[in-house]
């Protein structure tokens, strides 16, 4: 890499770090149990806003995988979700009323907390509607994955976000607090994803799936990115650049084999398309705090006048990670 590019990226990284430190001042600790984090613990980082309905299952799912500690940022919820999580002994909670859009969609706050608490730990950064699936996740805890990555001298683990949707209208998939969202939203698009290489950051830019097929078929370049690198052996010098799509230093983005081989990778099951979605879309389109002023949500709202059916005859019904592996949506790579 050229010295100039290298310097430019370094400066960019420093700038994000500085910015995170500034934005960190917007955070107030509600419940700080970080003293109980042991050196080998795996920590989950998450920002949420009015997600009380999703939190119980979310916590249960990741506790079952073996996450040891949860660090949450509550961005101005008024639905009691914060109270719900702050009582648990493995949760630390911060809150802020700062603007989501002006903190790089929550990333600044999380970067600040990661600097403070994740250094030397495996850190999993996900949204409340993202559920991490990795090879052998039904038989091996997340600690096994972390140990194996560490032994293989791998610092970051790549995934693709897989949008899950119900069969039938989205509004008919009624989600109740504590339920497994994939009881209803258990269909996905198996093979319509397109990939581009980002030359500067060296990450892959993956788009497609049902969102491109149904909502962005006339403007595919605006379709949301699906590549995510949520699981990283954190170091104080790291920072996410845009959501968890890519990181700096950019070597962390090389989660893919470049000579034909497959590296090990997973999937983030995205439980977006449930009945709570249409209400949310209206709200977020109005709030315009999300990426590009909620452009994505606006296009759902215009499409959503008539509740869409996302399901099609080529949709696949979710079974387990082995199915995703066989379809080529994730890979065991060298892990056996």
């Amino acid at each position: 890499m050229g010295a100039w590019t290298s310097y430019r990226l370094r400066m960019r990284r420093k700038r994000w770090k500085l910015r995170a430190r500034r934005k960190g001042r917007e955070l107030t600790a509600v419940q700080d149990r970080t003293h109980s984090i042991r050196p080998t613990d795996i920590i989950l980082f998450c920002t949420f806003r009015n997600e009380d309905i999703r939190l119980p299952f979310f916590l249960q799912y990741y506790r079952d995988l073996g996450v040891n500690h949860f660090i949450f940022v509550d961005n101005g919820s008024d639905d009691g979700g914060a109270d719900y999580v702050s009582g648990d002994p493995d949760v630390s909670l911060w809150k802020t009323d700062g603007a989501y859009g002006r903190s790089r969609y929550g990333i600044d706050w999380l970067t600040y907390l990661q600097d403070k608490y994740a250094h030397g730990h495996w850190a999993l950064t996900v949204d409340v509607d993202e559920f991490f699936v990795y090879p052998f996740c039904d038989t091996r805890p997340i600690r096994a994955l972390a140990d194996w990555l560490e032994a293989s001298e791998v610092r970051s683990f790549g995934t693709m976000m897989l949008d899950m949707y119900p069969k039938g209208p989205v509004a008919a998939a009624v989600y109740r607090r504590g339920d497994d969202p994939f009881k209803w939203a258990n269909w996905f698009d198996p093979g319509n994803y397109t990939i581009k290489l980002n030359d500067l950051y060296r990450n892959l830019w993956i788009q497609g799936g049902p969102r491109a097929r149904v909502f962005f078929d006339d403007k595919p370049s605006q379709s949301p990115a699906l590549n995510k690198i949520p699981f990283v052996k954190w170091d104080r010098s790291y920072t996410y650049v845009s959501s968890t799509h890519m990181l700096l230093p950019r070597g962390l983005n090389l989660v893919y084999g470049q000579n034909g081989g497959e590296k090990s990778s997973g999937v983030l099951l995205h439980a977006k398309f449930l009945n709570i979605f249409s209400k949310r879309a209206l709200e977020e389109a109005d709030r315009a705090e999300h990426y590009s002023h909620g452009r994505e949500y606006k296009s759902y709202v215009t499409e959503n006048d008539t509740d869409p059916e996302i399901w099609c005859q080529w949709s696949e019904q979710y079974i387990n990670w082995r199915q995703l592996e066989a379809l080529g949506l994730m890979s065991k790579g060298n892990w056996a």
């Binding site: 990939i195 590549n227 084999g257 081989g261 497959e262 994730m330 890979s331 790579g333 056996a336």
Partner: peptide, 22 residues
């Protein structure tokens, strides 16, 4: 042996988040 094959050669014609050959 299969794990080795997958890591070094992969599945030809597959493009995904952890296989993007030149």
């Amino acid at each position: 042996g299969r794990a080795l094959e997958r890591r070094t050669r992969g599945r030809p014609g597959l493009y995904m988040q952890s296989r993007f050959p030149n």
